[in-house]
Design a protein around this nucleic acid. Structure first.
Lengths: 188, 188
DNA sequence: CATATAAGTGGAGGGTTCCTCCGTTTAATG
DNA sequence: CATTAAACGGAGGAACCCTCCACTTATATG
């Protein structure tokens, strides 16, 4: 029923030329999305990938599927970041990961939009994030530093919401994040 | 320099037929935006308003201006809500307003998107919200119930971020809002 | 009331993007 | 090689965007 992240990655075509085109399309899409947002013309993407428009549509029947595929690699980067902070103290580790989450996601509009949709792929991505973040949260809760009545998906959603705030400064975002994180702390 | 909310409202045409069309367009747009998002075809909106496409473009040169005009009326409803909670105790009043903010804004995708843009109109709207909300915040701070180091725009942005979280349940949103609001409380 | 005129109107049409269909090309396999 | 299933590219119809301009009408004035 629920697809996992790992399953999704292996949806690339098997024939050599096809796989080359597929990868080329993803690369072109990432570039275009970064430059012009998720509404970038698909024909432009196909052109950049040096591929016919039909090939794009065969691999990604809808714009959504293309967005998702780009998104997939980004989200894994955030997941991996969880491992990099594991050596820190419980609270600092959680904090560092969430901060990185906000900074990273904040610059990638694709991610922000994605985090709030409910297609299968996006659900799988959220699951991946939950798995990566849960240990950090639980460790902090076990150390009695974080209130016990919140789950990892609450935390991610909260932080994702903050990351989505646009047209503001780095400082304000930090300040707002700090407020929210204070709410996470266990009431002494 | 900075336009105020009141100034913006009075941009309606003066001739009777023109004003009728203008209002009709806004109504049609609100309906279409609600049904199909802010990317709804403009020609569809003109059709619903029973008006030529040129009339739409004359009143609203860009899609953005149309979105803004719809947004304007919505945001005033939220501002007015501030008065309705003034009779409550300081903390309850702030809480009630922010809750209403989230519930109301959460159902109107236009608002969520708008809150994060930086056109003149949207800035004016934010200013309006700040004016409406500031008294509530300050009262709660004076009563030493809310930490003194936050400003109204931090609070609004924070809450707007939460309101923007999509594909979730009413309960989760409430829970997340509660966490964030806990962060607002003054550390005892 | 008549009428001048400024303000408003609608829709044709050129440009862009979307997405499907189908005849051609090519990688893989024996 | 030869075969064939898979992959390919691009033409073209449909939807939408936005401008331009010839026509209509509300309103102010004599």
């Amino acid at each position: 029923m629920t697809t996992t992240l790992a399953e999704l990655v292996q949806r690339r075509p098997s024939r050599a030329d096809a796989r080359r085109n597929y990868d080329s399309l993803i690369a072109a899409a990432r570039q275009s999305f970064a430059e012009m947002g998720t509404e970038a013309p698909l024909e432009e993407i196909a052109r950049r990938a040096d591929v016919g428009i039909a090939t794009l549509y065969r691999n990604f029947p809808t714009r959504e599927t293309l967005v998702e595929s780009v998104y997939l690699e980004e989200v894994q980067a955030v997941c991996n970041a969880a491992a990099e902070v594991a050596h820190l103290e419980p609270w600092e580790a959680l904090l560092a990961w969430l901060r990185r989450f906000v900074t990273y996601v904040g610059t990638k509009r694709v991610l922000v939009e994605g985090l709030n949709r409910d297609s299968n792929t996006f659900k799988a991505c959220r699951l991946g994030l939950y798995e990566a973040g849960a240990p950090l949260l639980i460790r902090a809760q076990d150390a009695r530093l974080v209130r016990p009545d919140v789950a990892i998906d609450d935390v991610i959603r909260l932080v994702a919401g903050i990351a989505g705030i646009g047209s503001t400064t780095e400082e304000q975002r930090d300040r707002i994040l700090a407020i929210a994180l204070d709410g996470l702390k266990r009431a002494a």
